[in-house]
Amino acid sequence: MSSKILLNYSPEKAGKPVIASIIKETGIPINILHADLTPEGGEIFIEADAEKDRIDEMIELFEKQGVRTEKITRGIILDEDSCLECGACVSLCPTDALQLTKDFSIELNEEKCVYCDACVPACPVKALSLKKKKL
């Protein structure tokens, strides 16, 4: 089962190879979906594929190393009532989570979304929003 987790780095942890050491320790393949990290700290958004208890064990290791974690469930919302279906968002989406169907409707496939926020400010009618929700 794949889980999406947002890692929050403090300035002290920003330069440390935390992810590498945890991959090494747990053997869980971790995929970085999006990173916004500077020497002042920041966020890395990861996807990890493992059983639930192993994911929990991995989360515990992150916390132990001083990296705050958030399990993300429902992240992006498309308000279909206000959407113009203009398609301004689709070419900005790096993972094809937003696509135009054959009849030119906008289709949001949340599974593919990496919450990079490229589409949200570009929507001319603010029909897209990001919501981070903890489990």
Binding site: G87, C93, L100, F104, S105
Partner: peptide, 25 residues
Amino acid sequence: LKSGLIELKGVERPVSPLSSLKKSR
């Protein structure tokens, strides 16, 4: 353009219509 991808400088580029084609129809 309506196919959603065009080749530019040797790479397929994603295309956004800014007009709603569904609504136009």
